[in-house]
Design a protein around this nucleic acid. Structure first.
Lengths: 147, 147
DNA sequence: TTCTATGCAAATTATTTGCAGCACT
DNA sequence: AGTGCTGCAAATAATTTGCATAGAA
C-alpha cells in the first residue's frame, strides 16, 4: 500500500482518500478492467464513500496525465479508463456481450509504424478496436451495447 | 442528379431539400471529406439554406443507417462523417495539422481477421486510427486538435 | 389527403468549471 | 496562513427528442 501511495506522490499528487479509493477500484476491477467514470462513481457510492462525480472525472484525468491510466474513446459516447499496463495492447469488443478482450499483435504493430513512415510521418499513438461477435451470432455494429 | 435522388429513394428516404443539400455538401468536400455535423450545418447556413442543426443530425444518422455515410468517433468529443466509399480504408490523423489521411493495408486487414478468429469470434467491423506527427515535430497526443 | 420530414426549443448525456470550505504542512 | 483538494451546483458541448406545422407522393 505504501506502494500505491508512492505512485501518487511520484505523479505529484497528494495522497487523498478519493484518489486512493479510485486507484483501488481500478485495481480490483479484475473481470472487466475498463470502467467509465460513471462506473467508478457508482462503485464508490456502493462502498459508502462520499465522493462527487466531478472529483471522479478530475482524478481520472489526473491519473491519465500521470500515465497511471489510459483513456479509451470506444464507440458509444462515454470514455472508459483502464489501469495502464506496462505492455501496450489493443482491444476487441464483443457486440453481443459488451465484453472487452485485449490482444497484442506484433505484425500489426510493425505495419502501423511502417505505414506512418511511408507517408512521411512519425507514429505517436494509435487506437485499434475490433468489433466482433461470437461465431454464428447475428449481432451488428449498429446495436452496439449502450450498457 | 437523378442519380443522387435515386440513392435516396433506394434508401427509402424521400427526396427533400435538406437531404439533397447535405448529400451535395458531403460530395463536394474534396480536400477534407470528414465533416462534423456542425461543419455541415455551417456550410448550409453559408449557402443561405434554412436547415436546423437537429435535421442535420437526423439526416446524417439516416444516411449512416442507409450505408451512404460512415460515422467515425475519432478522439475529441465530436463525431465526423464521410461519404462511404466502396473500398474500405483506415485513418491517420496528424496531431499537428489535424489533417486526416486515409490508407489501406492488406496485411493489417488480414491479421485482424485472423486475430478475431483465433479468439473464437467473427470480425464484424473495426476502427483503426494512427495518430502521427510530421518527422521532427514535437506534437503529443494530449494536445490533439480541438478544431 | 395522408404520412413523412423539418424547424425550433426543450431535454439528455457526458464532462468541465466556479467557488466556498476543509485538510495538511 | 497557504496551497492543494473536494463536493455541489451551475455551465458546456454534442446530440436527441417532442411537437405543431410544412411538404412530398
Amino acid at each position: 500500500m505504501a506502494d500505491k501511495n508512492h505512485e501518487l506522490r511520484k505523479a505529484g499528487l497528494k495522497v487523498t482518500l478519493p484518489r486512493v479509493k479510485i486507484l483501488q477500484i481500478l485495481e480490483s476491477a479484475t473481470d472487466q478492467h475498463h470502467l467509465s467514470a460513471e462506473d467508478v462513481y457508482k462503485t464508490l457510492l456502493e462502498a459508502g464513500e462520499d465522493v462527487g462525480l466531478a472529483t471522479v472525472y478530475r482524478v481520472l484525468t489526473q491519473f491519465e496525465s500521470a500515465g497511471l491510466v489510459v483513456r479509451h474513446n470506444f464507440d458509444g459516447g462515454h470514455a472508459v479508463f483502464e489501469l495502464s499496463h506496462e505492455e501496450h495492447h489493443d482491444h476487441m469488443v464483443c457486440l453481443e456481450s459488451g465484453e472487452i478482450i485485449e490482444f497484442f499483435d506484433e505484425t500489426i504493430e510493425r505495419r502501423q509504424q511502417e505505414i506512418a513512415e511511408e507517408h512521411g510521418y512519425e507514429l505517436v499513438d494509435h487506437a485499434l478496436v475490433l468489433y466482433v461477435r461470437p461465431r454464428g451470432s447475428k449481432a451488428t455494429r449498429q446495436e452496439s451495447i449502450k450498457k
